Simulated scan of single mutants.
Amino acid sequence: MSHVTDPATDTFVTYRNLLFTIAYEMLGSAADAEDVLQETWLRWIKVDAKNVRDQRAYLIRITTRQSLNRLRAAKRRKEAYVGPWLPDPLLTAPDVAEDVELAESVSIGLMIVLETLSPTERVVFVLREAFDVSYDEIAAAVGKSPSAVHQIAHRARQHVDARRPRQVVSPSETRAALRAFQRAVEGRDLQGLLDVLAPDVVLVGDGGGVKQAALRPVIGAEKAVRMLFGGLGKVDGTLTAEPTVVNGNPALLVRLDGEIDGIMAARVEDARITGLYYVRNPEKLTRVESETPLTRR
């Protein structure tokens, strides 16, 4: 028996990975992005597709509006969150890492910077910078004039540029720093850790109130080492850290006695780690073992 789908479903499936990527970059949460896709789908099937000139643009518009609504609601949720909030890490396929612009736009480091934008600024920045959506299209999605969107995009870009890393670091450089970090942690090598961490390294842990993590970012190599060895060093079981790729960038999957403890992502400058992001909240670790397809097309 042949399986027949309707054109609306076919169109939605064609753009599903793109819409997920857009919603995820706007929200930093895989579960929220999936909810946005569900809402987008429910609105899309009520539309007479014959009257839609550009179906891709129309779907992006619905996804953007739903994401903006959620972003505004999430602001209140995040204010009540226990400790620092980090985006959900996603295991990604090699093609994401190969697309340098996509890998940068979904990197944990940049996603953290995007958290400092207002909801409208974030939505405009993501559509313009990561997906090259026209100002007219963005204006239609966010309900503002193209000239207002122009100004918002400019402001958001300045804000992000002031906070993103100065230099572009190759994945191999990040991998090398993480390898040195991995060896030091697994070997309980205090000096090895101090050698790979920049003196003013920032360690951010996200336990979400479920797992132990510092309630504020820890600044400075010695404090970070104390925190790491205070948490991971007291561990009686077997601690392992295996290289993986999350959000298109090298990372470490940390296991305790074979069970996933968290994902460690890093920001590297001049061969040393300047930012360490450790996601331990179990609710955020649902997508670190099977790949999530991300795309800009």
Rank of each mutant, 00 (worst) to 15 (best):
L114V: 10
K144F: 13
R128C: 06
I108G: 06
P119D: 07
L114H: 13
V149K: 09
K144W: 04
H150F: 12
D136C: 03
A130T: 14
G109V: 13
D136T: 12
K144H: 11
I112A: 13
I108H: 09
S147Y: 06
A141I: 08
I112Y: 09
V124K: 02
A130H: 14
S147L: 14
V126N: 10
V106L: 07
G109P: 12
A139C: 12
S145V: 07
G109R: 12
P146I: 08
E115G: 12
V124Y: 11
E137V: 03
T120W: 01
I108N: 10
R128E: 14
A141C: 00
A139G: 07
L117A: 07
S134H: 00
V106F: 02
I108E: 11
S105F: 14
F125Q: 07
E137Y: 04
V142P: 09
K144R: 15
V126K: 03
V142S: 03
Y135G: 00
L114W: 10
V124F: 10
V142E: 11
E104Q: 15
S107Y: 01
T120K: 12
S107P: 01
E115A: 10
L117D: 06
V142C: 04
V142Q: 11
P146L: 05
E129H: 15
S105T: 08
A103T: 11
V113W: 05
L117G: 06
A130C: 11
I138T: 05
L117V: 10
F131A: 05
L117Q: 00
L114I: 03
E137N: 10
L114M: 10
V126I: 03
V124S: 02
S105Q: 13
V106I: 15
S134L: 06
T120G: 00
D136Y: 07
A139I: 04
S134Q: 01
Y135N: 11
F125C: 02
V123H: 01
I108R: 12
V123G: 08
L114G: 04
L117N: 02
A148N: 13
Y135H: 02
T120S: 11
I108W: 06
V123F: 05
L127T: 01
V106Q: 07
V123W: 01
D136Q: 13
